[in-house]
Each structure stands twice: as C-alpha cells, then as structure tokens.
Design a protein around this nucleic acid. Sequence first.
DNA 1: GTGGTTTCTCGACAGTACGTCGAAAAACTC
DNA 2: GAGTTTTTCGACGTACTGTCGAGAAACCAC
Lengths: 205, 205
Amino acid sequence: MSTSPGRRRGPSKGDRRERAILETARELLARKPLADITIDELAAGAEISRSSFYFYFDSKLSVLVALLHGMAGELGRDAGPWLDGAGPDAAALREALTPLARLWREHGRMLAGALAAAPGCPPLAQWREELRSAHVDRLAMRISRDRAAGLAPDGPAPRVLARLIDDLRTAALAGSADPEALVDDLVTVELRMIYADFADRHPAG
Amino acid sequence: MSTSPGRRRGPSKGDRRERAILETARELLARKPLADITIDELAAGAEISRSSFYFYFDSKLSVLVALLHGMAGELGRDAGPWLDGAGPDAAALREALTPLARLWREHGRMLAGALAAAPGCPPLAQWREELRSAHVDRLAMRISRDRAAGLAPDGPAPRVLARLIDDLRTAALAGSADPEALVDDLVTVELRMIYADFADRHPAG
DNA sequence: GTGGTTTCTCGACAGTACGTCGAAAAACTC
DNA sequence: GAGTTTTTCGACGTACTGTCGAGAAACCAC
C-alpha cells in the first residue's frame, strides 16, 4: 500500500518520473491540502497520463507518505544535545528548536496537512506516531533523570508531561505563520513546564 | 453556504427532518470523520432521499457547522471564574477544565475532526478562530493583570503565551482517549506556563 | 540488429460521490 | 377545494478514483 507495485531495480527513466511526481506533489502541497490535489495534477506535473501515475504510486496518499518519510530524519536531527543533556539548558533547547522551526517554515503546509489528515488514515497516523514517540520517549527519560537528580520538581508522569510538550510544540509550530519567531517563547515555556522554577528571564529579553 | 436555502418559518415536519439529519450526523461523526460520511448516509438516517437532503443543507459541511454552532456556548461556559480571577488559582482552573474535558470525552471525535478539517475550509476555520480568540483574549488580559500585580513573572507576550496555552489545551484534549484523566496534569502545566514558580505540588497528589 | 524480457504508457471502462433541475406530491391557508 | 407554500424525489451532468489489458519503448543478451 505504501510504495510502488511495479519497478524493480533499474536507475532509469522511471526514476526521473517518480522524482517528478514527488517534486510536483511537494510544490502543490505547499499551496493546498492533499484533498484538493487531484491525481490528474500530479500526473500532469510529471508529464505522464493519469493512468501512468498508478504505475508509480497507488494513490496520492502514498506520495505524501513517501515525501514524509524523506523528511523523517531531518525532523529529529539536532535534538540530541538537548535530549541527552540535563537540567534547564536553554541554549541546547534553542539549538534543537531553531532548525525544527526552519523546517516548519519551509514545509509547514505539507506537515500541517499531513498531521490534520493523520487521524482517519492509518499510514499517516503511523508516521505521526513514530515521530511522536521518537521524541516523547527520549524526553520522558530526560525528565526522569532530571527529577532523580533533583534538577526538576515533581509533577505529571514523565511520559505524560513529555507528551504534552510534544503536543504543544507541534500545535504551536503548525499554527504559526512564522514558526521561527516562536522559538524563544517555546524555549521559555517548555522549560517552565519541566522545571517550573527555572531562573526565569525571557531568553530574548 | 452555511444554512438552508429552502425553509421559511413553519415549525413543521421539515423541522423534524432537519433534526433527524443533525442527529444522524452527530452519531456518525462519533464514529468516523466527515470525509468518510456520505450524504447518502445522512439522508438515509433521516429517512429521506439524497436529493431531499439538499433541501435542508447545502453540503455535509453545513451540517457540521450547524452542529458546531450548537455547541459554541457549552465550550466556553464555566471558564469565567478562572479567567476573571487572579493568581495561580488551581481550583478555579480545574473547575474550568473539568467540564471542558467532559465535553471532549463526549464529542471528541466530532471536535477533533472539525479542528483537523478547519484549515482548508473557511467556515470551519472561522468557527475555530472565534472559539480560540474568545479564550485567548480573556486569558491574555488575565496574564497581563497578574504580571502587573506582581503575581506572575515576566515572559512571552501575554497574547503569545495565551495562544500557546490554548494550543496545548486543545491539542492535548483532542489527542487523548481519556480527556478527563488529563485535567490535573493540564492544571499543573498551564499554571507553570504562566507562573513558573507557583507552589508546585501535583494537584492530585 | 534480432529476439526476448522487463519497464513503462495509455485509452477505455466501471464505480462512487457530488450537486442541480424541474416536475409533482403533501401540507397548509383561506 | 383552489391557491400557495413546503417538501420530496428521479434524472441528469460532472468530477474524481482505481483497474485492466493492449501495446510501445528501453534494455540485454548474443
């Protein structure tokens, strides 16, 4: 259901077509949601007929999923130092959030569309779930460590808190027209959610 | 685009049909997203033909909007004491969140579906925006008051912070299978976002 | 370059859902 | 019980989806 039923191994002409479809999809998704995109448009963008499209993907959803998997790596990168660190390290958190916000600025419509369509569409839901748990698992461990070390106060169960932070971050980035402008405020707020009494100057001020 | 093109004033048979459509929609929306519901189903539920449906509503979206407007009042109720109060009043906040969580438990699928469909659908987007600003405006004023009174530390601009809290609350309630179990944690976390160093026992513990 | 295999392309078809139109049945009014 | 308004529905046109099978094009020997 997710990839192509046809092709085998050649690095040939079909590859260019597949890329063209993906590229067209990327462009269209930057302008309108998946539901408003027809397979005709995708096919036209790649200069093939509508039926030929089905040789490469078995639905427009598969195209979106392919696009999304191509970004999976980027979304998690740069989060390491913050997630593996300890204590209210605003700088590390900002280093994690800045590239993420940039990604949301560039691909926000696509990501937001995918997120919105996820419930009610198993392959997208799974992608979203993997992404989420990749973040939540590590963040929950970090919270546990900090609490054990006396660096963070008690509060909601680590996994629950981590999930709330992930929800907040995603909703905020998805809803903002200028995600990068949100980074400093997100840093402040995420730290407060975990540390509450963290030395509390607004990072930008 | 939003209400019926037909009916005038009679409180008659057509009214029962309209109710029946709404009721059917409510039931179906509790099980699957709007996109998976056909006008046939809605019409069948109200025991009329598909074409007759169009006498009452001009699309299934209009049905959802009507349903949503019917709930607009409920969603904001009970928030008064918290929004008009001052300081880290966990009890008042919990009083606001508890009925809200109950509403999300009962109508979660419908609300989540509407929220997800909102971008890319003007009437839903407007509903979401009204709902949001009703909350954000008042909460932002509350934050400003508390800061002026020295009850809350400085931080993100009040409107931005209020918006983040609204995003968090909505995303958390929408994503949870058991919203009511989240109330205490949301109380803790929202208070931390605003007050940071609020006396910090987990409300439930 | 010829024959065989794989890769790729497309037109034709069938299915589903949407929304509109106009004729007419049902209900209500006096 | 004639006239008006409300309500119903079948027929129609349109848009999009996904499948099938015939065949063109590219590739690979030899």
